[in-house]
Simulated assay, not measured.
Amino acid sequence: MNDAAVWILPAALVVVFVLLIIIAQLSSRLKKWKERATELEHNIEVSSAVAAHPKKPHERLVGVVINVSKEDADEVVRLVEAGCSAAGMPEPLIMASSVEDPGYLMTRRALEAGCDVVIAAGGDGTIRAVASELAGTDVALGVLPLGTGNLFARNIGLPYQDIAACVDEALHGQPHKVDTLQLSLERPGGRKDHEVSLVIAGGGLDAEVMEDTRDVLKQRAGWLAYGEAGLRHIMGSRKTITIQLDDGDPSTVRVRSVLLANCGSLQAGIELVPTALFDDGHMDAVLLTPRHAWDWARILAKTTMRFSSEIPMMTVRQAVRGRIRMEEPLPFQIDGDAVGEVISVKAEVAPLSLIVNGVQRATLDKPDD
């Protein structure tokens, strides 16, 4: 074998290796280009929604749906009126929610009046009611968090402890489209209700806690009151459900809690479902199946320490739609509000169906690393 022949094979291997590296780099760049194109398309959609009403400040009408039972209600009204006046906007349309209606009718009135943004001032229940009416429209939602948990405000990165800053974001913040989770609840008597979730809906332990948290304790201790209720209910019995996600096969599981998450952050910086993003077009279905205290300890360690590895007693799966059937009626909650017992739930993500002003943690707007 001559010298040229000896070097042909190694040289060929080097060439192949270099080509593989080039292909890998091109593939990586192509992936980033595709992701960037998706981001640009998303931004164009938002810009188009905003450009559909190219109004000057004196032509922009602001609606406010406020829970007047909240301690800061009067101050919020003053701040919104002052903000509108300073910007040269008309006097805002202020409407109070009620125990019977947390904001649905008031939001419809704001839409009929031609409001360009409707501000929800209250807890997550008020925000959810307003969002339910605004989803699918080109009218933006403004968020003024006055509740105990303020979960939606936390998840989108609003400075929820600074109401004046939240007012500024609601009036002038950059609009961003987020997903909504459309729910169909079937009751034990056969009645079906349509609901919308922005944060987390679920049945089992979480609903029991929301239903049994003492109002007096919430007023004194804030969100820590949920912990007191949780300790009283955590060791309850598991329930049998059958869940089907997208076109997958149904599976029957005994759970202590089943969650459908549009967002994943809770109070105290706890990332219950880190993969749940409010603008990714998916929901995260979470099955909690602990059998004893040690299982709960592992769940607690995973969520508080933010371990990425899966554990068998807490499974998370992403889907666009899903259906849950309960073997027996199960208490259910939506974004922290107990909504009674259900025997089945249908859920489907409505991607980028709601415009929200002042989103600070827009996942689709993050630049490439």
Rank of each mutant, 00 (worst) to 15 (best):
Leu288Ala: 12
Asp212Ile: 01
Gln174Arg: 15
Gly147Ser: 06
Val339Gln: 12
Asp193Trp: 13
Glu75Pro: 00
Met314Ala: 04
Met210Ala: 14
Pro54Met: 03
Val320Ile: 10
Asn43Cys: 14
Lys31Trp: 08
Ser251Lys: 13
Lys239Asn: 11
Asp72Lys: 12
Lys55Thr: 08
Thr315Asn: 02
Ala49Tyr: 03
Ala37Thr: 03
Ala221Arg: 02
Leu158Cys: 07
Arg220Cys: 04
Asp279Ala: 14
Pro290Arg: 12
Ala120Tyr: 02
Leu30Gly: 04
Met305Ser: 14
Thr137Glu: 06
Leu185Pro: 02
Ala225Phe: 03
Val356Cys: 09
Leu105Asp: 07
Glu348Asn: 13
Asp249Glu: 11
Glu133Cys: 14
Glu328Ala: 12
Pro188Lys: 00
Leu354Gln: 05
Ile119Gly: 05
Ser69Cys: 03
Ala121Ser: 08
Ser251His: 02
Arg108His: 13
Lys31Ser: 12
Ala153Phe: 04
Phe278Asn: 05
Leu19Tyr: 09
Val316Phe: 01
Gly269Ile: 15
Arg187Leu: 06
Val77Phe: 00
Val16Asp: 07
Ile66Tyr: 10
Leu224Cys: 00
Met95Pro: 01
Thr315Ala: 01
Ile243Cys: 14
Ala362Leu: 04
Thr213Val: 15
Ile23Gln: 03
Gly83Leu: 07
His282Glu: 12
Thr303Lys: 08
His42Thr: 08
Ile8Glu: 03
Gly222Asp: 01
Leu185Gly: 09
Glu112Leu: 11
Ala86Ser: 14
Ile94Ala: 08
Gln182Glu: 15
Leu183Trp: 14
Val62Ala: 07
Ile324Val: 13
Arg256Asp: 00
Ala87Arg: 11
Val77Glu: 09
Thr303Phe: 02
Glu271Cys: 10
Arg254His: 07
Arg298His: 06
Lys302Ser: 03
Ala120Lys: 06
Gly202Pro: 15
Lys366Ile: 10
Gln182Lys: 15
Ser85Val: 05
Pro331Trp: 14
Thr304Ala: 08
Val255Lys: 09
Leu111Gln: 14
Val139His: 11
Ile234Val: 08
Thr38Val: 01
Arg60His: 04
Cys166Gly: 06
Gly83Asp: 04
Pro367Tyr: 00
Gly136Cys: 03
Asp193Gln: 11
Ala113Asn: 05
Ser265Ala: 14
Phe332Leu: 15
Arg191Lys: 11
Ser132Thr: 12
Lys55Gln: 02
Met95Gln: 13
Arg317Ala: 09
Val316Gln: 07
Val286Cys: 11
Met89His: 06
Ala110Phe: 13
Glu75Tyr: 07
Ala120Pro: 06
Gly264Glu: 05
Ala110His: 12
Gly322Cys: 13
Arg36Leu: 10
Phe332Met: 15
Lys34Thr: 09
